[in-house]
């Protein structure tokens, strides 16, 4: 529910009592709800995380929507449309959750369009072939699921509830991607090569989706103390590597990383070095498709302005008519 915070902030008594209840709830691993008192830093950190997550879903529609007309069959077009529609839905669930923290959705949209807000770096890579759509479903959505399942237990109620809904829908995304790759892997040599090429290009970017290494992730520690994040970036990345290292065998293809192995001593999966300079460049807006994604988002928003205005004008007219009918009666 998107009610604005009703709690009075600023008075020392209220803040002290609020902090105490907040700390108790976090210690009990209970949930914080929109109208509860919460530390300003918690509100700010969540607003940043949830709105970035929402922006990622919305921007994430673009690379796949570009392929709807080129999907190889009517069935694949229908599947891809359903997936893109889901991404829009996920964006809206998350904007609603972020709004409960007090920032209006229109403000978040403006921030995205003005280039003030971030979204996942993964969507700034080009989608070159049909096999990329498979690799995105399998690796990108797979990594997203790995990240999101623990977020279902995030301490902020509306975020956790949005994640539950999203995770349920996300598993179809991963499976359809895997199936695309499986069909290509069982096709001609050219199709197998295309599938392998897509995996080669999406492997490292999808591992970087978990965020910077733990020793270079300033927000992680606080986020874990607040029970927002449950596992560190490296922990989740290692789990994901273990999953795809097994899954790739079913495809009869390989991961482009000779260093992937299970470390018996630590009980964790390991992978080769990742190019964190590239990650920072893409995040800073200098990836292959950043400018194009932003331009398209802006264009879509501006093209939709007349629809929003017309709908608001129609609602006003209906409300006025209803009011004058009541007066006349």
């Amino acid at each position: 529910m998107a009610a604005p915070a009703a709690t009075q902030y600023g008075s020392p008594d209220v803040d002290a009592a609020g902090q105490q209840l907040f700390d108790e709830l976090i210690a009990q691993d209970s949930r914080i709800e929109p109208r509860d008192w919460m530390p300003e830093a918690y509100r700010k950190s969540l607003t940043r995380q949830i709105s970035q997550h929402a922006h990622s879903e919305i921007i994430g529609m673009q690379p796949e929507a570009n392929w709807i007309t080129r999907a190889p069959s009517l069935k694949r077009k229908a599947i891809l449309m359903a997936k893109v529609q889901d991404e829009a839905g996920h964006g809206l669930y998350l904007y609603s959750a972020a709004e409960t923290l007090g920032t209006p959705r229109d403000k978040m949209t403006e921030d995205l369009i003005a280039g003030k807000a971030r979204y996942s770096s993964i969507f700034n890579y080009p989608v070159l072939t049909w096999a990329d759509i498979g690799a995105i479903g399998w690796l990108v959505d797979g990594a997203a699921i790995c990240n999101q399942v623990p977020l279902c237990r995030a301490s902020y109620g509306p975020y956790g509830r949005a994640m539950v809904r999203i995770c349920k829908e996300e598993s179809f995304h991963q499976r359809q991607g895997f199936e695309i790759l499986l069909e290509l892997a069982n096709g001609t040599q050219a199709q197998r090569d295309m599938a392998q090429d897509a995996i080669n290009r999406w492997y490292a970017p999808s591992l970087m989706m978990f965020g910077p290494p733990d020793d270079d992730s300033p927000n992680s520690k606080q986020s874990m103390a607040w029970n927002i994040k449950r596992f560190s970036n490296d922990e989740l990345r290692s789990r994901f590597v273990g999953m795809i290292a097994e899954q790739v065998k079913a495809l009869g293809l390989s991961l482009p990383d000779p260093d992937v192995r299970f470390n018996e001593d630590t009980g964790k999966w390991e992978h080769g070095p990742l190019d964190w300079e590239e990650f920072k460049e893409v995040l800073a807006g200098r990836g292959p498709c950043n400018a194009q994604r932003m331009e398209r988002r802006r264009e879509a928003h501006e093209d939709g302005a007349w629809v929003r205005e017309a709908a608001a004008a129609y609602a006003d007219k209906q409300a006025r008519r209803a009011a004058s009918a009541t007066e006349a009666a």
Binding site: N66, P126, V127, L128, P288, N290, Q292, E295, R298
Partner: peptide
């Protein structure tokens, strides 16, 4: 694919 990284206005 439209994925050519052209600049935004």
């Amino acid at each position: 694919t439209g994925d050519d990284g052209s600049t935004a206005p």
